[in-house]
Amino acid sequence: MSAFLDVSSLSKRYTSKRGLFGAARSMYAVNDVSFQMTKGRVVGVVGESGCGKSTLARLILRLIEPSSGTVRFDGLDLLKQRPREMRRLRARMQMVFQDPYSAIDPRYTVADAVMEPFQIQGVRLSSAARSDMISGLLTMVGLNPGTASSYPHQLSGGQKQRIGIARALALKPALLVLDEPTASLDVSIQAQIVGLLERLQAEMGLTYLFISHDLALVKYFCDEVLVMYLGRVVEALPDTDAPARHPYTRTLLDSTFQPDPKLRRRIEPLAGEVPSPFDLGPGCAFATRCPRASERCRVETPLLAASGGGHAVACHHPD
């Protein structure tokens, strides 16, 4: 069976202009990332700020152009599609953004916002069909159809995110890329939105790529997990119960507190913070902070290697 989404050796390199005090510098926001997604699965991408997870999301939808690599969606090579074909394809692959405040045009009513995808795709609807569509979409995401005439500033953050989801689902896509869809919401609202996403996925058989910094949420919500660090996937977990083998994944787990005082963590001091992504030398990017780092880690970049059962880890000294 061919993969629904097949990402292969995908990279995005940015180069800064020559500065006042030095030569141009370059960095890989996404570095040699490969993975496959099966239809109907929920794959999580987790990592700290600057790990490249949002860039990866945008590369997959071709909102930005990769420096190298390929993305195949349902057998089609996305990077070979012309703009018109790409636009048509985007009806089948949509994105929900982190900040529902800036994702919706403040001058649009809720009805305008959820109908915008039809306008972009050039779909004309009769006014009866249009109002049916609007109330159907709003009901689907748990909003009262009466909110159709409201403006974004009249809505709460949770309601706005529901609009963002309704708009992403308007054209009945197969793949939804969710970029931190709950990061700017309170936990009680986050739980509502996560519940909504679970229900929609079950009802419509959607495939989700779920980007998040929150490992506990990813482990709760996703079937499979990719852990990123400084542009690379360092570990791919085939299911959320698979024991972590990469020292960075283990550090993330150990740093994630539990909502239970009986499960307090002994926090081990971790050296330093994420280094600058500019001009990373050879070797493992985590070596500067890794308790297991050896000489080999400082000279030879570990590549993501399958370790059985769909598990893959990029480490010279995995657990």
Binding site: S156, D186, V187, S188, A191, Q192, L215, L217, V218, Q258
Partner: peptide, 24 residues
Amino acid sequence: KALIGCIPRGLAGAQRLKGIEGTV
């Protein structure tokens, strides 16, 4: 009780999240 039920405990078993209806 409801606030505690909103927190994913991804690390310790998959109890379904219960949101709190409505807004503050």
